[in-house]
């Protein structure tokens, strides 16, 4: 079966792109393969690990479970766009201060999810961090404790 390609316009980390994609191309694939956004990691491919999380119009989404055609007109941000000229954001800083990463494969996705979460809940309890803020992400290395600490620390700073 040959299908027509679709033209899609997306803004990625502030830069606008027009791409012509097979409808089946996943947003994660477009971002990684066409735009060099290799900070997006592919861990599970079944919408559970969140390593591929990006923000689309300010909302975090799992880019492995979106077709690129669904992102037409969207403004996409990845973890690479958070820091201001190399100065880490409070969340990023808290992650390194609290030793919240080991292999780092989950980290870009978690940071993007937490970045959105703390907009909605500025003073989360540890339980809320575990159950809500980190609900969409898996980490196989850290056992989460330091990630929970980092989110707590970041929330305090952002307050």
């Amino acid at each position: 079966m040959t299908v027509e390609k679709e033209e899609v316009t997306v803004t990625v980390n502030g830069e606008s792109h027009v791409v012509s994609v097979e409808p089946r191309e996943l947003l994660s694939q477009t971002l990684r393969e066409r735009m060099g956004c290799t900070e997006i990691n592919i861990g599970c491919e079944s919408a559970i690990c969140g390593a591929c999380t990006v923000q689309s119009d300010g909302k975090s989404v799992k880019s492995c479970t979106r077709f690129t055609v669904q992102a037409d007109g969207a403004d996409i941000r990845t973890v690479s766009d958070l820091a201001d000229e190399g100065t880490l954001t409070d969340i990023q800083q808290a992650f390194t201060d609290e030793h919240a990463l080991q292999c780092g494969y989950c980290t870009p996705g978690i940071v993007m999810a937490v970045d959105e979460y703390l907009d909605h809940n500025t003073d989360p309890s540890r339980e809320e961090i575990r159950n809500e803020a980190l609900q969409g992400n898996l980490c196989r290395c850290t056992g989460y404790e330091n990630i929970v600490d980092a989110v707590e620390t970041a929330a305090e700073k952002l307050d």
């Binding site: 956004c37 290799t38 900070e39 990691n41 990845t78 973890v79 690479s80 820091a83 190399g86 880490l88 990023q92 992650f95 390194t96 201060d97 030793h99 990463l101 780092g104 494969y105 980290t107 870009p108 940071v111």
Partner: peptide, 16 residues
């Protein structure tokens, strides 16, 4: 001390 590896990851620069 904080890990030297972290910054690269947090800025999206790690490469697998």
């Amino acid at each position: 001390v904080s890990r030297k590896e972290d910054r690269k990851v947090l800025l999206g620069g790690s490469k697998g």
